[in-house]
């Protein structure tokens, strides 16, 4: 589904990603861990198409298409979804209007007619229930007045509504209390299927107790320095990141 080869990217002349290789297949959940500043969120941003990042080298193919050639909106329309680490508040744009616009723009891209009002309502109810997100959405501005936890749940709710092929969760667990963490994880687990894939970016192992990954990668200094299975996450939890930072352990699996 997603194939990243030797991806390098910089921000304002500072090289942040220094050659990332990653293969994600349908049905898989990949966790990307690593200390602060290792480039985890940068990888998410580059994949979603944030303009402040400049890709200097490498290839990314997404379902056979060159992802890096696509605009951010076309990446989304092709089925890439980024759950933001800091979802933005947009006063004046209603949640519902925003969702309907997004859904219809994606449908238009695939030459489908706009969703009917009744169907949209049904879908909204169904998905809200699925991700246990009961915030009143009508007549409320996008994320405005939402608590940190509600914002993250709204991200997962949007994910459920847009039904992407590949979802990147950028530190979705940060700022969540244990109940919210459980709800968010349950939502993701219900949405997992053999047709979609997830990249879960996290700093702590905690989230991976709930969303059990197939693979765990450790990102350090702009590179994946270690890959393994979920046991790697437990080892990191126990030993911290320092041992990873030892003179380059090039024998990454």
């Amino acid at each position: 589904m997603l194939s990243i080869k030797n991806l390098q990217a910089k921000v304002e002349d500072k090289l942040i990603l220094k050659g990332i290789d990653l293969q994600v297949n349908a049905g898989e959940v990949h966790a990307i861990m690593g200390p602060n500043g290792s480039g985890k969120s940068s990888l998410a941003s580059v994949l979603a198409g944030r303009e402040s990042y400049e890709v200097t080298c490498g290839d990314v193919t997404f379902d056979g298409k060159n992802l890096l050639d696509l605009s951010p909106e076309d990446r989304a329309r092709e089925g890439l979804f980024l759950a933001f680490q800091y979802p933005i508040e947009i006063p004046g744009v209603s949640n519902i209007n925003f969702l309907r616009t997004a859904l219809n723009e994606i449908r238009a891209y695939h030459n489908e007619p706009p969703i009917e009002a009744k169907e949209f309502l049904r879908l909204t109810r169904e998905k809200q229930k699925l991700v246990e997100f009961d915030a009143k959405l009508t007549n409320r501005s996008l994320n405005e007045g939402f608590s940190g936890g509600e914002k993250k749940r709204n991200e997962i709710f949007q994910l459920a509504m847009l039904n992407p092929k590949l979802s990147i969760l950028d530190e979705t667990d940060s700022g969540l209390d244990i109940d919210a963490l459980r709800i968010v994880s349950n939502g993701v687990n219900k949405l997992r299927s053999d047709k979609n894939a997830f990249i879960v970016i996290t700093h702590y192992q905690r989230l991976l107790d709930y969303i059990v990954p197939d693979f765990v990668h450790v990102l350090y200094d702009g590179k994946i320095v270690k890959s393994g299975t979920k046991e790697l996450a437990l080892e990191l939890e126990e030993r911290g990141y320092d041992w990873i930072k030892e003179p380059v352990t090039s024998e990454s699996v």
Partner: peptide, 8 residues
């Protein structure tokens, strides 16, 4: 960017 990242 947020709106675009949702396909808008």
């Amino acid at each position: 960017f947020y709106l675009k990242a949702r396909g808008i």
